Computed example of a mutant assay.
Amino acid sequence: MKFTKTIGLTLCAGALLATLPLASSAQIKVGVTVSATGPAASLGIPERDTVALLPTEIGGQAVQYIVLDDATDTTQAVKNIRKFTADDGVDVVLGTSVTPASLAMSDVAAETGTPMISVAASAKLVEPVDGPRKWVFKTPQNDALMARALADAMVKQGVKTLGFIGFSDAYGDGWFQEMSAAAKAKGIQVLGDERFARADTSVTGQILKLLSASPDGILIAASGTPVALPQRELVNRGYKGTIYQTHGAANNDVLRVCGKDCEGMILPAGPLLVADQLPDSHPVKQSALVYKKAYEDKYGAGTINTFGGHMWDAGKLIERAIPEALKSGAKPGTPEFRAALRGALEQVHELPASQGVFNMSPTEHAGLDERGRVMVKVVGGKWTYQPDL
């Protein structure tokens, strides 16, 4: 990887992916851990690559980004945040890519009094805002917000019964809880709850159980390229109902891995995924296109990735909050500054970003509303905006 201008690259024992920029003079330090390898690599790689696009000066202060790979491993993610806080003296942590590791990291964030902005999706990371969650914010849309969009789409498509297969971890747990509630509110019966691990290579048994119940639709609650495993199995088994995915599937690598078996699947996604297709009146179109242009100017046409957008949005949050924290008079690298930064993040209001418009508060650490979601269907191998769903 080659970075331009003031951005440098440092490798250390295969773990430290990048130190950006001005390591000797940076006054504000940002620790970033992502799953650049392992089952969630299709999420972590664009998140990592987006760091090179984040501002290197905020509020008149130089900013240093220290980027580590946690390999989609919870233990490594915790080691990374402990390194950031104990050895590097960071002012804020961004990451990580997946929910289980982000949940584990939140305890360290609270213990050390370090603001953390996760790029994982589960509402459990920030709800309710108490205990360790007082120090944790996140940029992906909450499961509940997306589950309600799915339930609305299912009603329009005449779905009365729903099968469920999801990750056997906190991501799947959160989605089963939220989708069950959203489905019940719309009179949709959930017929099954099957699970699989992120690294599994077969889900035949689980799919056969779901098919025996003959649901009108099936939701796959997973993220990254592992979503292709149950999708492909359902198609190959001749399932004729509607296959739904979560916003964890909003990834071009999914289309590549899944191929024609993805055709027709429906999911809620952030506006970034189909920004070019949105009407000019959409409140997120212009801010989403800013990130899309920046990313594709650096990495090539068609490389834009919705998960990278979550990291961009984390960058937008600290870009808004750091100047406010500096007004407190606290110096970067101190507990006082970290506390001021946490407080400033809670005051972010009407911030347009790539995936929505953020409004944080002392009781809201996700901050996205219906402006942060659209319905999408795979048509002709491409993500297609579905304004009528």
Rank of each mutant, 00 (worst) to 15 (best):
residue 12 C to M: 09
residue 345 L to M: 14
residue 207 I to A: 12
residue 214 S to F: 12
residue 364 E to F: 08
residue 12 C to Y: 13
residue 119 V to I: 15
residue 250 A to M: 14
residue 155 V to W: 03
residue 192 G to V: 01
residue 173 D to W: 05
residue 109 A to K: 00
residue 364 E to G: 04
residue 287 S to V: 07
residue 129 V to M: 14
residue 126 V to R: 02
residue 344 A to E: 15
residue 286 Q to M: 10
residue 170 A to T: 05
residue 10 T to I: 14
residue 230 P to D: 12
residue 243 I to C: 02
residue 286 Q to E: 15
residue 384 T to Y: 01
residue 15 A to S: 11
residue 147 A to E: 10
residue 200 D to F: 09
residue 300 G to T: 08
residue 387 P to A: 06
residue 233 E to W: 03
residue 200 D to P: 05
residue 280 D to K: 04
residue 66 I to R: 06
residue 37 T to N: 12
residue 347 Q to C: 07
residue 140 P to I: 07
residue 291 Y to K: 04
residue 256 R to I: 14
residue 324 E to H: 08
residue 213 A to E: 13
residue 211 L to M: 13
residue 319 E to M: 05
residue 56 T to Q: 05
residue 124 K to C: 02
residue 325 A to H: 08
residue 245 Q to F: 12
residue 367 G to Q: 10
residue 260 K to A: 15
residue 364 E to P: 10
residue 375 M to P: 01
residue 2 K to Q: 13
residue 357 V to K: 08
residue 306 T to R: 00
residue 54 L to S: 01
residue 310 H to W: 15
residue 389 L to T: 00
residue 383 W to M: 04
residue 62 A to D: 12
residue 188 I to C: 10
residue 359 N to I: 11
residue 133 R to V: 12
residue 11 L to I: 09
residue 48 R to C: 02
residue 239 Y to C: 06
residue 233 E to K: 01
residue 262 C to Q: 03
residue 381 G to T: 10
residue 150 L to I: 14
residue 233 E to D: 07
residue 23 A to T: 07
residue 118 S to E: 06
residue 146 M to H: 10
residue 344 A to N: 09
residue 12 C to S: 07
residue 71 A to L: 11
residue 369 D to L: 04
residue 175 W to P: 00
residue 80 N to I: 04
residue 311 M to K: 00
residue 186 K to A: 15
residue 359 N to V: 14
residue 87 D to Q: 11
residue 44 G to T: 08
residue 352 P to W: 13
residue 174 G to K: 02
residue 29 K to N: 11
residue 49 D to H: 03
residue 297 D to K: 03
residue 23 A to V: 11
residue 85 T to G: 02
residue 378 V to F: 00
residue 180 S to I: 00
residue 335 P to N: 10
residue 297 D to M: 05
residue 196 F to E: 00
residue 210 L to W: 11
residue 158 G to N: 05
residue 323 P to Y: 11
residue 57 E to T: 09
residue 315 G to E: 10
residue 191 L to T: 07
residue 110 A to G: 13
residue 158 G to R: 01
residue 49 D to I: 08
residue 317 L to E: 09
residue 280 D to C: 03
residue 22 L to Q: 09
residue 367 G to K: 06
residue 235 V to P: 01
residue 117 I to W: 10
residue 187 G to Y: 15
residue 305 N to G: 06
residue 174 G to L: 03
residue 376 V to P: 00
residue 271 P to H: 02
residue 186 K to D: 15
residue 321 A to S: 11
residue 342 R to L: 13
residue 316 K to L: 15
residue 279 P to F: 01
